[in-house]
């Protein structure tokens, strides 16, 4: 079987272009109801009807395809295998993380990322083992969405992207930037296509498997799961960005290095 060449940007552009076709706008509450108006402003979801429609499709795809696949993945593989898969994927994401650390002016975090990449690719056998954490270079997440936030860009209204889920204009921009900065985006040829498709599939399985219990819980407890995911996404991003703004306090000095007093 021949796979079509992997063109992530084409796929994403198609998805984004399809979005306005469903465009609908949320009706603001009457202007004299101050509290309701304030809530509407804080929720900042003017495209709510469209977002809800996309959320419903994403949710159905998840229930039919991704969730059963993630459960099978959990059932069929022992935890150490899943953690190795996660480590490999995380290591592949290092260049993008390094770019974000540097763009945010965080030399220590950038040093951590670079050392992690070098150590885990070599001693960690291509990222299978996360040796770097034990050696004093812990993992941290970072990306262009956070960079844009640190640079002062507002998040903008809430958006639900087809397939990719909760976002906003800033994080969508960050997502596209991350894709453009990823060296693997520029590979071509049939074997690289297989690599890219496998990476996407594995990423989806890995991410979904790690959230099985949380999503189960939300589906069971939330009266309006759309609003719950919206709130969780916003809060989670705000916390990540607050942490990124705090500065560059991590120690590049490895754990085994005796501190000189």
């Amino acid at each position: 079987m021949r796979l079509p060449p992997f063109r992530p940007l084409h796929l994403l552009a198609a998805l984004l272009l399809a979005t306005p076709l469903l465009q609908g706008c949320a009706t603001p509450p009457p202007a004299d109801d101050k509290e309701a108006m304030e809530e509407f402003r804080q929720t900042n979801d003017p495209a709510e009807p469209t977002n809800r429609a996309i959320y419903a499709v994403n949710n159905a795809l998840d229930v039919m395809i991704l969730e059963p696949a993630a459960r099978a993945y959990r059932g069929l593989t022992p935890a150490p295998v899943r953690s190795s898969v996660h480590n490999i994927l995380s290591n592949l994401g290092s260049p993008v993380r390094l770019a974000a650390d540097m763009a945010q002016g965080k030399p220590r975090l950038a040093g951590d990322t670079l050392m992690r990449m070098v150590i885990n690719t070599t001693v960690g056998l291509g990222g299978v083992f996360d040796v770097a954490t034990d050696w004093g270079y812990p993992h941290h997440d970072n990306g262009a969405g956070t960079t844009l936030a640190v640079w002062g860009m507002e998040e903008g209204p809430y958006l639900v992207l087809p397939i990719f889920g909760p976002s906003n204009p800033r994080d969508t921009g960050g997502f596209l930037t991350d894709m453009a900065l990823d060296p693997f985006t520029y590979t071509s040829g049939p074997s690289w296509s297989i690599f890219s498709y496998s990476r996407i599939g594995a990423t989806a399985l890995d991410e979904r498997e790690r959230h099985i219990d949380d999503v189960d819980q939300i589906r069971k407890q939330a009266l309006d799961s759309y609003a719950t995911f919206r709130s969780l996404y916003r809060q989670h991003r705000a916390a990540e960005i607050a942490r990124a703004r705090m500065g560059d306090k991590s120690w590049t000095k490895p754990a085994w290095f005796a501190p000189s007093r």
Partner: peptide, 20 residues
């Protein structure tokens, strides 16, 4: 938990449900 407040999340769930 990891930057997400339980009561804030619950409030937005209830508010949205009531509004709808």
């Amino acid at each position: 938990a990891e930057g997400t407040s339980l009561r804030l999340t619950q409030r937005s769930d209830y508010a949205s449900f009531i509004a709808r």
